[in-house]
Design a protein around this nucleic acid. Structure first.
Lengths: 217, 217
DNA sequence: CGCACGCTTGAAGCGCGTCAAAAAAGGTGG
DNA sequence: CCACCTTTTTTGACGCGCTTCAAGCGTGCG
């Protein structure tokens, strides 16, 4: 909560960041302030002022939304190197929370016209990510969803054979629109069938990535 | 198929359109060419060259994606006045198809830097639409999904008490991640419980919109 | 150590999908 | 306008996949 407040404060009140944005987004920033969040700490929530976006320095972030009875849908996970936080209006409509201990670099969305094209590209990619996730959640079986998820995360981490899952089974379930029990059973089945190793609950070693790809098309 | 080819041709080879884009997007265009499509005609498909976006003059459009075994997910419906077609890469990743007889105005995405902000806004709105739809598909019951769908479509058409559905039950099912039978049963239940009238399969009269809103939160 | 929390596994129930067929709507030609 | 066909929608019966409920298991931390 405290660091969350700092995040907004720093990002919105430090005009000196302006000239660095274009370079920073592409990864060529000068040494820059990193805002740290503890596990499960809120980064922003519905109603909070928008206009800032974030690049994950380390850790992982979940974007989610709740129904009034507590049902939760995680819209996206963001890992190190990825960018999130853009919204069309003046305020956020979703929660962003640190999953593990996480560091973020903040950028002001309206600071520089030069970033507009870059920002458009990021927004479009995020749009497509959500759209493709719709296919997974809407039309794939529980088993296929887990496979899609594992292939997605492992490819984004760069190492197919050794994948660290920063998120809990509950997070995975709420991302894929299922329950933790079904998530767990799907993992167990994949291990039994020799597609993956599970040294522990948060580590996945994909053994037959190509075969897995075929299983969820 | 034939008109589909025309669409791409006209939009990409007519530089005279350039100066009109900013005004056109905001609805102040000079008289402009409308490309017509028959019902179920493809507007573009995966692999087709992107860089053009479209504003629906009349009719309705579905954006969808297929799994290899034929399962289909409709990502979005676009009604008269709405804009679609932006993609991050050089080629499209989805199908766009006319649902009914439809007329479109085409715009070149890269023609004018002035549209960049406007385009960003459109892309962000489309991103949020997809993200919110994820909550519906991932976490709501079949019954709630139908309610969300009806409220969404009717509000976009402007008239809550009299809503025309341009799309079939199959389209609705593929949009909400369910089957046509379940869609039909949900409609029947809503009618039995007095929430809606169904003069015919494509016309819905919402009788207790506020109560419906409460039912799906 | 022992409690707490996250994960796994089992058993039972239910919502939705599947299969099947009737009913309604739309389209065509006479 | 009606007869005939096709397509869409509705309705019913049944089965399965996933959720729910419940209990064990492993691991970390005070």
């Amino acid at each position: 909560m405290h660091a969350s407040f700092n995040a907004a404060t720093i990002a919105l009140s430090a005009p000196k960041f302006g000239s660095q944005f274009p370079a920073a987004v592409t990864g060529f920033a000068k040494p820059q302030l990193i805002i740290n969040f503890a596990a499960d700490e809120e980064i922003y929530g519905p109603g909070d002022k928008a206009g800032t976006f974030y690049k994950v320095a380390y850790g992982a972030v979940r974007i989610c939304r709740l129904l009034t009875d507590g049902r939760r849908q995680i819209i996206a996970f963001h890992l190190a190197g990825e960018t999130f936080g853009f919204e069309p209006g003046l305020t956020h409509g979703f929660f962003a929370e640190a999953i593990t201990e996480t560091g973020l670099r903040a950028f002001n969305q309206y600071e520089s016209a030069e970033t507009s094209h870059e920002l458009l590209s990021l927004a479009l990619n995020e749009m497509v990510r959500a759209q493709e996730h719709l296919l997974v959640v809407g039309r794939q079986t529980a088993f296929e969803r887990i496979i899609s998820f594992l292939l997605d995360i492992s490819s984004r981490q760069g190492d197919l054979e050794h994948t660290e899952l920063p998120m809990s089974r509950i997070d995975i379930a709420d991302y894929l629109g299922m329950t933790i029990e079904t998530v767990s059973r799907a993992f167990a089945k994949l291990r039994q069938d020799g597609y993956i190793n599970l040294p522990n609950a948060r580590t996945v070693e994909i053994r037959r990535g190509h075969a897995l790809r075929d299983l969820c098309e």
